[in-house]
Write a protein that binds this DNA or RNA. Structure first.
Lengths: 220, 220
DNA sequence: ACGGATCCATACCTGGATCCTG
DNA sequence: CAGGATCCAGGTATGGATCCGT
């Protein structure tokens, strides 16, 4: 079953509101897709069903989830205490090209320019019984953008000068760099010392959970 | 079920001889894989089972089927009169790079430097009952190579100067250029007129059936 | 008859994220 | 408890070729 793209932000907000309180099991049933029984096997399923329910353009590469609106969709898993249980993946890192990027036109900034955050219950609630919360349409405040920019410039700078291999997830106040791969044997190219190129585990940018928590708590 | 790579050309020839007279159905059964019932759905199945039976390194990109030996495997479908029913795919065409290739190191020449031709019955024999014939290990004679070279230089030259779009399968005495894609809407990049780049249907090099017929008829 | 169109398998890549052990 | 490791879906790319309408 397919849903047409929303024609404006208002229509998107209405659809997102309609999702609040519904469970992942109901949604899967309505869309006619089976849910994995093992939650390890369904890491991305909430996000993917949410895309379909809201009429996002699925899986296409360079464009935002709602291309016409320039809005990106992110589901956030909430622990029983209401706080995000996980960090949020932002985008993968093309390490060999990152020296050509600048913050204003960077992939991270474009991804985060306008986001629809959709909270959903996380473990220990079983997959099918996890309920969606009230969505929030967000754009970074000047203070938030400043935090993101300064972290990004530090991290991207280290990658560009060939230090991605030494980079750990400890770096960055709100943005961090972590592995992004099917398994630890996957290789991608990255700058090495002295203009060399070497193969490393692919990485991605992630938002720390404490940062998304502040976004969700701010009064809309 | 997996078969170890042959250690020398002699071992490969022995295995290929052992295949002669056996049917595709027997082979599929021995390897524990099902055959499609509709022959449209099994266009590549004879070649793939043959690879497995002979211990070819399956599906890996740049290397010959028998990497250590530098030998490429090709199955040839024979009509009831013993003549090849189809042309033989050689390799896909990277149109934007072809201006940097020269015949001696070209993909076509490398693919055809050393080929194990394995004949197999074609339609109207049902898939499972098609029998393999006697394989032939071949290297191009000087005359054959000269034919290939001159066709390749004509075709590659036309592609390099931006004429792939106008190129039809009529060109070339033994080598030709034809579409190579899942369907007609697939696009790939190619040089256009005046240093431009345009999108076209991807193409590949193929050997005309009359050429493979002469190869198979020549006394080993 | 054959030139243009198409079909399957497999590997890889990207985007969706959560798992899990020290 | 969070940093490093991993899992699924879907699309793309390539190599195995044959199908089929004019």
């Amino acid at each position: 079953m397919r849903v047409a793209p929303p024609r404006c932000a208002g229509e998107l907000a209405l659809r997102a509101d309609a999702l609040a309180g519904r469970s992942l099991g109901e949604l899967a049933c309505a869309l006619g897709v089976p849910l994995p029984t093992d939650s390890r096997r369904g890491k991305g399923v909430a996000g993917q069903l949410c895309e379909r329910a809201l009429g996002a353009s699925a899986g296409s590469h360079p464009v935002p989830d709602f291309a016409g609106l320039g809005v990106e969709l992110k589901t956030v898993p909430l622990a029983p205490d209401g706080k995000p249980r996980e960090s949020t993946f932002v985008c993968s890192i093309a390490a060999l090209e990152i020296d050509k990027e600048e913050w204003p036109s960077s992939r991270v900034r474009r991804k985060l320019a306008h986001v629809l955050w959709v909270p959903i219950e996380a473990a220990p609630v079983p997959l099918a019984r996890r309920r969606f919360g009230r969505a929030r349409l967000w754009q970074p405040s000047p203070a938030e953008e400043e935090l993101l920019r300064s972290d990004w410039e530090e991290l991207a700078g280290l990658i560009a000068i060939g230090r991605m291999g030494e980079l750990t997830a400890h770096r960055g106040r709100v943005l961090q760099v972590r592995p992004k791969a099917a398994h630890a044997r996957v290789r991608a190219f990255a700058p090495g010392p002295d203009e060399t190129t070497l193969e490393t585990l692919p990485r991605g940018f992630y938002l720390r959970a404490a940062f998304t928590q502040r976004i969700l708590e701010a009064r809309p």
